[in-house]
Amino acid sequence: MKPALAEPVATLPRGEGLAYEPKFDGHRILLFTIDGSAVLQARSGRIVTAAFPDLAEAALALPDGTVVDGEVVVWTGGRIDFAAVQRRAAATPARAGLLARRMPASYAAFDLLWERGEDLRPAPYERRRQRLTALLEPLGPPLQPVPMTTDPELAATWFETLVEAGIEGLVVKHLARPYRPGARDWRKLRHTDVHDAVVTGFTGPPARPAALVLVLPDDDTPVVSSPLPPALRSHAGRLLAGRTAENPRGAPRTATAIGIGEVPYRAVEPGLLAEVERGTTRHAVVTVHRLRDDLINQV
């Protein structure tokens, strides 16, 4: 199932019939309950149930035929830790249980698409929100609805104060609109378009990579950065030395490069973050500002 999407905006939308939610930076996950089992689907369509056994177990408390849209996050020291949730998402089945105990995940739910076999996507957001809170509030963590308000002044306060907890902005929705998979009906307002991203690979020669392959917050699909400047290429080569990972299936890995399409790349082991800037257009170029060697091996 395709999730609904959001279009970036530069100022806080105001007007009648709007709802505001904090924007969490984690992994977008659709959670399904089917015949007594839970299935977790990433935004790309990849099934990631095995990577989050703690959430899959918690989801069994939901009735069959339920689909929830939300964000998987990991909290560290009272702040959202994107590097930690990426490590959880990339875990092998053999390590997933250990990481779940060390870095338990939370599911920040923001929409209810199906409940007990009833398709709620045509219903207005206001009704879906009421059903979501009624469903999840009796359960409590790790499944919980995100906060929501219709007061733009309170939303503005959230925007200014929640950044310390790793909340990067707001998502704005119309109370009367349905859930439209794949459509950009929502709006998102960010503090900045500079983020930490996980380096998962590179293109070009290992000693001087031409570009980095990155996983950005809120999306598990690897993307290729814009070309690295010469000094950063040399630095990346030194930091990535010895980190190349083999593909167990033998087939080359590919990632999306804006303006080019799918390109092959060499994968690397987790352990390096990059500070990146992504444009605010739908197909935005990702520019690497620096490599977070101060945080190396913490992913």
Rank of each mutant, 00 (worst) to 15 (best):
residue 178 P to K: 00
residue 196 D to I: 05
residue 154 L to N: 00
residue 85 V to C: 06
residue 166 G to N: 08
residue 196 D to L: 15
residue 121 R to I: 01
residue 68 V to D: 02
residue 177 R to M: 09
residue 5 L to V: 00
residue 14 R to N: 00
residue 65 G to D: 04
residue 181 P to C: 00
residue 291 L to A: 06
residue 232 L to Q: 04
residue 236 A to N: 06
residue 230 P to C: 06
residue 212 L to G: 05
residue 170 L to Q: 08
residue 79 R to F: 10
residue 107 Y to G: 05
residue 234 S to A: 15
residue 185 D to A: 08
residue 281 T to S: 14
residue 95 R to Q: 15
residue 190 R to N: 07
residue 260 I to A: 13
residue 35 D to Y: 02
residue 247 N to K: 09
residue 291 L to Y: 10
residue 177 R to A: 13
residue 222 P to C: 04
residue 218 D to N: 15
residue 249 R to E: 13
residue 182 G to D: 02
residue 136 L to Y: 00
residue 234 S to W: 14
residue 101 R to S: 11
residue 193 D to K: 12
residue 118 E to Q: 15
residue 134 A to H: 14
residue 259 G to S: 00
residue 89 A to W: 14
residue 132 L to R: 07
residue 272 L to P: 06
residue 10 A to T: 14
residue 139 L to Q: 05
residue 231 A to G: 12
residue 75 W to S: 03
residue 246 E to N: 09
residue 141 P to Y: 06
residue 167 I to C: 07
residue 106 S to A: 14
residue 2 K to Y: 06
residue 146 V to W: 06
residue 41 Q to D: 04
residue 53 P to A: 04
residue 236 A to D: 02
residue 210 A to H: 15
residue 229 P to A: 02
residue 81 D to V: 00
residue 295 L to T: 11
residue 88 R to A: 07
residue 215 V to F: 08
residue 129 R to I: 05
residue 253 R to N: 11
residue 73 V to A: 08
residue 58 A to K: 01
residue 182 G to M: 00
residue 276 V to T: 12
residue 49 T to F: 00
residue 273 L to C: 09
residue 269 E to M: 13
residue 59 A to Q: 06
residue 118 E to H: 13
residue 204 G to S: 09
residue 100 A to R: 08
residue 225 S to P: 02
residue 74 V to I: 07
residue 93 P to Y: 11
residue 37 S to Q: 14
residue 278 R to I: 06
residue 15 G to D: 01
residue 285 V to D: 14
residue 218 D to Y: 08
residue 116 R to A: 15
residue 229 P to N: 01
residue 233 R to C: 04
residue 20 Y to E: 03
residue 90 A to V: 05
residue 23 K to I: 03
residue 295 L to P: 09
residue 178 P to H: 03
residue 164 E to Q: 13
residue 249 R to C: 09
residue 247 N to Y: 09
residue 160 E to D: 13
residue 278 R to T: 12
residue 73 V to I: 12
residue 152 P to G: 05
residue 187 R to E: 10
residue 109 A to C: 04
residue 27 H to Y: 13
residue 191 H to C: 05
residue 136 L to M: 04
residue 232 L to M: 04
residue 97 G to C: 07
residue 219 D to S: 12
residue 15 G to P: 07
residue 175 L to A: 15
residue 174 H to E: 13
residue 275 E to D: 08
residue 180 R to K: 13
residue 125 Y to C: 07
residue 269 E to F: 10
residue 168 E to I: 05
residue 221 T to A: 15
residue 296 I to S: 07
residue 128 R to P: 08
residue 67 V to G: 00
residue 52 F to G: 01
residue 122 P to E: 03
residue 88 R to Q: 10
residue 293 D to T: 12
residue 103 M to H: 15
residue 159 F to P: 06
residue 130 Q to N: 09
residue 269 E to Y: 10
residue 131 R to P: 03
residue 107 Y to Q: 02
residue 208 R to A: 14
residue 24 F to Y: 15
residue 292 R to G: 06
residue 171 V to H: 13
residue 159 F to K: 01
residue 177 R to T: 10
residue 208 R to V: 13
residue 20 Y to A: 01
residue 250 G to C: 00
residue 165 A to D: 12
residue 292 R to W: 03
residue 103 M to Q: 15
residue 89 A to P: 07
residue 200 T to P: 05
residue 70 G to Y: 08
residue 212 L to T: 10
residue 166 G to I: 07
residue 299 V to Y: 11
residue 152 P to A: 11
residue 219 D to F: 09
residue 199 V to L: 02
residue 141 P to R: 03
residue 216 L to S: 05
residue 121 R to E: 10
residue 75 W to N: 02
residue 23 K to Y: 03
residue 214 L to D: 05
